[in-house]
Design a protein around this nucleic acid. Structure first.
Lengths: 350, 350
DNA sequence: TTGTATTTTGCAAACGTTTGCATTACTTTA
DNA sequence: TAAAGTAATGCAAACGTTTGCAAAATACAA
């Protein structure tokens, strides 16, 4: 039906016997266009069904009003929640968001950074892959002074804006909690140490143990991608031989949930025989029986801080390379039934 | 530090004493550029740190290699899963995805459609708001013959490509299942009827009842946004007076989960006193005790079909306005404990 | 009326690509 | 060695905006 229907400002200009510059200014509410012409232009724009071409404007202005976001996957609770917040907040600021998933693949992350640069996004928000230790693919953004902010999984030794959780304290609190509830032999299931935040949680775990004069044993810590399958396998190892631990601190709620399933299978009672603490306060922890104690990371707050930081950077592009600050979002332990009661010194054997 | 560092193909051209056209063609592997020059150009491009400008290319080619996606919210299981699939599939095809959330607000949806059009996306994928009954804001896409595909929550009487679940059959199967398990008085908690798919599920529910000679009673059907709060309130109404129903078919798993919580609170046994079936097969249904019977919608299959359909439309833009087909994705009931056993004719009273 | 200040509008270049057509540079053939 | 054919490259326009500067139109003052 309709062939070349795309109306442009020149169509409006011709129709109204005005110049394109006037039309452009009128549409952008430039102060030195008379109210009358503004009105005529806008009316005609509507009449012709004119739609601004953001590509053209972006090319001319060297800004796309678009922000890029790279997360490992959007189907996981924590990144999903943050993405939602970021998206909605950015919308308020008039920015579009291109959400991309690296699927925890370093190569994909690199590719995404490049295509997002090509799309000339006005800023980039990233939570890195588990395995990203070289950050040079982000240099394009730094070098061209394009706002770049990292959250949650953030780089080490790479000078950028960073917004992260208090992972050390989170690990410390979770572990201390278990100790206070009487646990003496606490297993920790951690993510791979290529990802810094797990390192910090482990450090927190360790120092909680030490502070309570409990030994830190290497064999009691597992480093693995925190998937269901891996969690199940870890359980098989853990419960292959006695003595069983009396507490497990999992760096992830999926893992914590899987542990509970495993316990049910082998008839181990939670929290009586084993206490479990997860991480992230995924809503699933609440609907499971028994509900699981977990560490809340305030995703909403983090998301808000991310876009606030981003907007600051966007609006202060000129002032040379800034010294980047690091923001720490607090953490809160939400105690639930999975760690309730007190395990007495003499471990109950079934 | 670096001011005007943005290298363009003209920089490459100057450096190599070539014309920009040659450089452009070389970078795009145009067949009639000699292998030697291609090589030189690519080397120089790398050396200068050249990054293609997708805005400029998009403007020139009238295509952005970008697809828009509008969903109610990305934090819900079903849309999240589909978005993930779509995103990953599109990436394989070399397309970027701009994911947007309407937050179930009609106004936001309209606004998003417009900005995505302005961004000149090469296609648009939509699952509409609960309340979208007027679809004229999508006309821009239809009129300009830009690929447009709807999934799950799809328009009624609007000629477009549609990929939807088999909601009638889903409703029918879920209800039949409850009847087969002995339920005689089945409540249905439905979404608002402004959204067509709920209408179909209700129709399925109704016809299952009729087929088994059970009465359809208006007071046994609730129409509401399927949130936690609403589900809780519905429960309060349902169990305010006897007789209690012996089965509930909820059009959503969040609702099903909430029902189970409520039952626990009022000491009603599931499945003995009440059987529950949800919809979507959200993984949460599996980890709850007892696990909840639900209707799987094959989100992965749907996502794949969506991008397949989209790619077909994208590559066959010329051939006039096509007659759009409607695809139906099958549905499968996953029976779990929440509807196990057989409620005998004489209702067990506690 | 003329001149000056102020408001409003227009011209043309620029943003970084791509591409039809023309041109030049090489091969091949007679 | 000239003619003809083929391969490789270049020219210039176009995509739809925005914007500095110049010009025109209007208002105000003398």
């Amino acid at each position: 039906m309709s062939k070349r229907t795309e109306k442009t400002i020149v169509d409006i200009a011709e129709e109204l016997k005005l110049s394109v510059s006037t039309v452009s200014r009128a549409l952008n509410d430039n102060p030195n266009i008379s109210a009358r012409t503004k009105d005529r232009v806008k009316k005609m724009a509507r009449k012709l069904g004119y739609r601004p071409n953001a590509l053209a404007a972006g090319l001319r202005n060297n800004k796309s009003k678009t922000i890029g976001l790279i997360v490992p996957r959007i189907s996981m609770f924590f990144p999903a929640t943050i993405s939602t917040i970021i998206q909605n907040k950015l919308q308020e600021h008039g920015y579009n968001l291109i959400i991309c998933q690296s699927n925890d693949s370093y190569e994909q992350e690199v590719a995404l950074v490049n295509t997002l640069y090509s799309a000339r996004v006005d800023g980039l928000v990233v939570s890195t892959t588990l395995y990203t230790t070289d950050f040079s693919h982000f240099d394009v953004f730094k070098d061209n002074n394009i706002p770049l902010v990292f959250f949650d999984r953030v780089p080490k030794d790479y000078n950028v804006k960073v917004i992260k959780g208090d992972d050390y304290l989170g690990g410390f609190t979770a572990t201390s909690h278990l100790i206070e509830r009487g646990c003496k032999d606490i297993v920790h299931i951690s993510g791979p140490l290529t990802c810094n935040l797990y390192l910090e949680r482990v450090a927190g775990y360790k120092s909680a143990l030490q502070q309570h004069k409990l030994p830190f044993r290497k064999t009691r810590v597992f480093y693995q991608e925190l998937t269901r399958d891996n969690a199940w396998q870890a359980c098989e190892k853990i419960f292959a031989q006695k003595p069983y631990p009396d507490g497990i601190f999992a760096s992830n709620d999926t893992t914590a949930i899987t542990i509970m399933e495993y316990c049910r299978k082998i008839n181990l009672r939670v929290p009586e025989d084993l206490k479990v603490v997860g991480y992230s306060n995924d809503p699933r922890t609440e609907i499971v029986t028994p509900p699981i104690t977990s560490v809340d990371q305030y995703p909403a707050m983090m998301g808000e801080r991310v876009v606030a930081a981003l907007m600051e950077l966007v609006t202060s592009r000129q002032t040379g390379t800034p010294r980047y600050s690091q923001e720490i979002i607090p953490t809160q332990l939400i105690a639930r039934e999975s760690s309730a009661g007190t395990t007495k010194a003499a471990t109950k054997k079934k």
